[in-house]
Amino acid sequence: MADEVVLDARGLVKDYRRDRAVDGISLVVHAGERVALLGPNGAGKTTTLLMILGVVSPDEGAVSICGFDLAHQRSHAAECVGFAAGYLPLTERMRVREYLRLYAQLYGIAEPNPLIEEGLERFRIADLAGAMGTELSSGQRTLIGIVRATLHRPRLLVLDEPTASLDPDVARRVREGLLDLCHRDGTALLMTSHDMSDVVEVCERVVFLSHGQIVADGDPDAVAAAYGRGDLAGVFLHLAERHEPTGAQQSDHP
């Protein structure tokens, strides 16, 4: 299963007006692989994720998910993917169980109750099933969002800043839940985060972006060593400095 390619993005380019947000990114993720997409603000992470999710169409390049060409088989490809982001709200005026049921049905699951129970248990929030979305804290909303994204047991789970604004205990539950999911179901994980401790604990591969290009890709320790830094935070700070306009002429590569 580990050889199966769940995400194959080739030569992605995206321009917004005069700015090139993504400049030729190619990324292959295999089943069960846990990958962090890292880089300073404006490096092109979210645009890359949105192209992988089919919400933004690339100017050049193509994305294939589980063998489905995203440009022509978006709905089939989307069945293989789950997405959650720390900044996204829950759908309003619904109880948690109703909300999860809605999204399970959008993924074609007619009787989702056992999967909802399992998902809530995985992140230890079964007591929230009857709560209204407006009654939840931001951390609880994030957890519910991740449960929603994993209900249909996706082959690829895409998370944008999953632990942003979470307290350490909830962040730990998120990490443990994600690792459990990846190990049990062989789900591949592609996540962005500014919290390097999350990355080290959850991901086995890091992909650093800068100015819309991949500048490093590999094992976290190997990437840190290539940049002559002790850890990923050092690499991040190095790239963030290069990302400033005054440093744009300097090389982002190690």
Partner: peptide, 10 residues
């Protein structure tokens, strides 16, 4: 890009 579609895990 030519890989046949992979079925869902479950």
């Amino acid at each position: 890009m030519t890989q046949p579609p992979i079925p869902l895990a479950i």
